[in-house]
Design a protein around this nucleic acid. Structure first.
Length: 202
DNA sequence: CCCTGATTCGC
DNA sequence: GCGAATCAGG
């Protein structure tokens, strides 16, 4: 594969959107994340840290995620999570006058959306779940890794636990079943044969 | 171990 | 210019 204008354009766009090199590589196909990173540098993209253009104040090493939606449709929709307390460490002492217009016009997207390959959990009512499964889930949730939205990956259980409107909210985070968005226990709750649900429903 | 980007250097 | 290998880090 070569870097055609089109492919470079895609690269630029995705990089600007904050997509990771590996995600971009996957999208483009035929290239590795190394290739993408190498190209990014050759194109002069990347976080120009060195002083040359903008003072660049201090390119946030990680920067905040700015709460992104997990997925679209959601039966029992999950309100904004924003598990990040982050009361703003704010600037240091009054050492930077910065009377200038405003530094940081760079366009700083960053951490994009979280996979969400599957629809969000339906949060079935208790009477639709078998006692055994329910017990298993409760037991498992005690061991939940309590991950934040940004910590989820393709192989972590994305089952939400707690009230999204409060601080007591997190995602299961246990190893997800291959190909599924949830761990074994939550897959049991999320994916049930229609017949089973029908039979169990009052 | 999973993942990130950065850098080097032979091709 | 390209990107695998490697490095440094979360």
């Amino acid at each position: 594969m070569s870097w055609t204008d089109e492919r470079v354009e895609t690269l630029k766009r995705m990089w600007a959107e904050g997509q990771s090199a590996s995600q971009i590589a996957k999208e483009l196909g035929g290239v590795t994340r190394n290739a993408v990173i190498g190209k990014v540098h050759r194109l002069g993209l990347s976080n120009r840290v060195e002083g040359d253009d903008q003072p660049a104040a201090s390119v946030a090493p990680e920067s905040q995620p700015a709460a992104e939606p997990v997925a679209a449709a959601a039966p029992a929709e999950v309100p904004r999570a924003a598990p990040e307390p982050e009361p703003e460490p704010e600037v240091e002492a009054a050492e930077t006058p910065e009377p200038q217009p405003a530094p940081q016009p760079v366009f700083a997207p960053r951490r994009p959306i979280v996979p969400a390959g599957q629809p969000l959990p339906p949060q079935p009512s208790a009477n639709e779940i078998s006692p055994e499964t329910l017990a298993s889930v409760r037991e498992v949730e005690k061991r939940a890794l309590k991950l934040s939205l940004m910590e989820l990956t393709e192989r972590t259980c994305k089952w939400p636990i707690g009230d999204p409107a409060t601080d007591k909210f997190w995602f299961c985070g246990l190893p997800s079943t291959a190909g599924k968005p949830y761990c074994e226990a939550h897959v049991g709750v999320a994916f049930q044969p229609m017949s089973a649900r029908r039979d169990r429903r009052r």
